Simulated assay, not measured.
Amino acid sequence: MIIDLSGRTALVTGSTQGIGRAIAAGLAGSGARVAVNGRRQESVDTAIARLREETGVDTFIAAVGDLTTEDGVREVTRAVPDVDILVNNLGIFGAADALDISDEEWRRYFEVNVLAAVRMIRAYLPAMKDRSFGRILNIASDSAVVIPAEMIHYGMSKTALLAVTRGFAKDAAGTGVTVNSLIAGPTHTGGVEDFVYELVDRDLPWDEAQRTFMAEHRPQSLLRRLIEPEEIANMAVYLSSAQASATTGGAVRVDGGYVDSILP
């Protein structure tokens, strides 16, 4: 299958590192003009420089703005007025004892992981419907389905994101716009390395720490390893393509078999 995104403009939120940066690279590699988003100009500029070096592509756009605020959304939409592909990747996670999570933390997780995506969809979906083409992809998590005891506030936010996806897919019904969630499994990023070492012995070498984490905290994984960001990006690129025109309202799994269920 040859995926050609030439002529398409994409925006990937929270794309200065990790899964977001890998998705930005994948979309650009398939021909899309890609806007890279982060809160600070410096981090966005650094990410774009690395992406240009890694991909050999020079079509990246800086889209600086804090999407947890309405002002930040306006800054980003001014930088990128129209997009064909919106990937809502921005998110936070972390371990916490369930009874110690404050009201403020519950609200923060909902604000960052859910409302930021809603704001971006509201900003870009109307024009997508008018053009009869658009791809909206919300990066969810296995934690939306298998709520982790050590971060139920994160799981809650990702479950809500699945509902947001399904609802906006219905709003876009029959318009040529698709709206999907991508359920990412435990993925190897810098932030996840820090998270792993919160739960296992910090003195362990990384390979051993990863194996211990998967065995003790994610034993359902059929891969028995962390997923690489590029593996998530491969599915994101497909769902952004014309070939994925009949996939909408879905929660597509790239979870390494972590969720012990036939569906979703």
Rank of each mutant, 00 (worst) to 15 (best):
G191A: 06
E104S: 14
F110C: 07
P219L: 05
E42G: 07
D103S: 09
T77G: 03
M235Q: 06
E150Y: 11
R202E: 14
I101M: 10
S43T: 15
E75R: 14
T189N: 06
F213W: 15
N89Y: 07
T9K: 12
S30V: 01
E228D: 14
A32L: 05
D203G: 15
S132M: 11
G72E: 04
D171G: 01
A49I: 00
H153K: 08
D66W: 00
N89D: 09
M235L: 12
I262Q: 07
V83P: 10
I136P: 07
M120T: 03
R211L: 12
G94M: 06
G38L: 03
I101H: 07
L199A: 08
A149K: 13
S6P: 09
G38M: 02
R166C: 04
V34M: 10
P186F: 13
Y197G: 00
P264R: 09
L162T: 12
V145A: 10
I121T: 08
V259S: 06
A244N: 12
A117C: 05
S143Q: 13
E198S: 13
H188F: 12
G134N: 04
V34P: 07
T187A: 06
M120R: 03
D194P: 00
G91K: 06
Y154V: 10
A10D: 03
A127D: 10
P148Q: 10
A116K: 04
T16M: 02
G176T: 05
G14E: 04
N180L: 05
G14H: 08
G29S: 13
V34K: 10
D130C: 00
P205C: 05
D260F: 00
Q220L: 11
G18F: 07
L90K: 08
S261I: 12
D130G: 05
G250Y: 00
V83Q: 05
G91C: 01
S245Q: 12
L99G: 03
L99D: 15
K129W: 00
L199S: 03
A236R: 03
D71R: 13
E53G: 09
L67P: 07
T55R: 06
T189W: 02
T165E: 07
P229Y: 00
A233Q: 01
A140E: 04
V112D: 01
V145I: 15
N88H: 04
M128I: 06
T187L: 05
V83S: 04
R108V: 00
A49G: 10
A173E: 13
A24V: 00
L115D: 01
R21T: 00
G249P: 11
I121D: 10
F60W: 10
A233P: 00
G29Q: 13
A117E: 07
I3V: 15
L162N: 12
E53S: 15
I3T: 14
G20S: 09
R40I: 02
A10Y: 09
